[in-house]
């Protein structure tokens, strides 16, 4: 998609309830919504938009498990005393076994949480295409304030289809309709 300009027709709504019923209508009319933008997350919008459930929790689980294993295997490898490892540098503390699992639990837990959090946050920014220095095109400056936006991509669309979309916006109570090339 890089380098290709998108022609966008978008309508701005004043309220999320109006927006939601507009999305429902668009879905009923089989209009191909490019994207919906809002200043805050709207409860139930992902179902209306038929968005797939996010799999971030799977990412979190995998990273968390990586943390658990890193800590457990790391400590076991260093201290030894278990069936798996002889120990890189076994040390005796207070006459306790070299491999004293209960004492390894706190660090294992912290590493699980640390890996899970960092992994999830980094993956979140990567899959959303966000990051320091990223400048995504903004349709309207008020979308992060109090406007709710439905956008359609109109590349190569004929007059009749455009009019249909404009008709949709006026029928669903959009306050403003604009076009923009991003």
């Amino acid at each position: 998609m890089k380098g290709q300009h998108k022609e966008v027709l978008f309508g701005l709504y004043n309220d999320e309830e109006v927006l939601m019923s507009a999305i429902k209508k668009a879905k009923k009319q089989h209009l191909d919504i490019m994207d919906v933008y809002s200043p805050f997350p709207i409860h139930g919008m992902d179902t209306v938009l038929e968005l797939e459930e996010s799999r971030l929790h799977v990412v979190g689980f995998i990273f968390g498990m990586t943390g658990t294993l890193t800590a457990l295997i790391g400590i076991s490898w260093i201290f030894g005393g278990s069936l798996m490892f002889d120990g890189d540098w076994p040390t005796l503390f207070g006459g306790k076994p070299y491999w004293s699992l209960p004492a390894f639990i706190p660090i294992t837990f912290e590493m699980t949480v640390l890996f899970c959090a960092i992994g999830m946050v980094v993956v979140f920014y990567i899959i959303c295409g966000l990051g320091f220095g990223v400048n995504n095109p903004i349709l309207d400056d008020r979308i992060t304030d109090d406007k709710f936006c439905i956008a359609f991509q109109t590349n190569g669309m004929d007059e009749a289809d455009m009019d249909k979309l404009k008709g949709f916006f006026s029928a669903t109570g959009a306050e403003e309709v604009h076009t923009k090339t991003i």
């Binding site: 994207d35 919906v36 933008y37 997350p41 968005l51 959303c128 966000l130 995504n136 979308i143 992060t144």
Partner: peptide, 14 residues
């Protein structure tokens, strides 16, 4: 970070 308020982004953010 280039936040736009896309529905999908909000869903993941939540």
């Amino acid at each position: 970070m280039g936040w736009t308020g896309k529905a999908k982004h909000w869903q993941r953010h939540e």
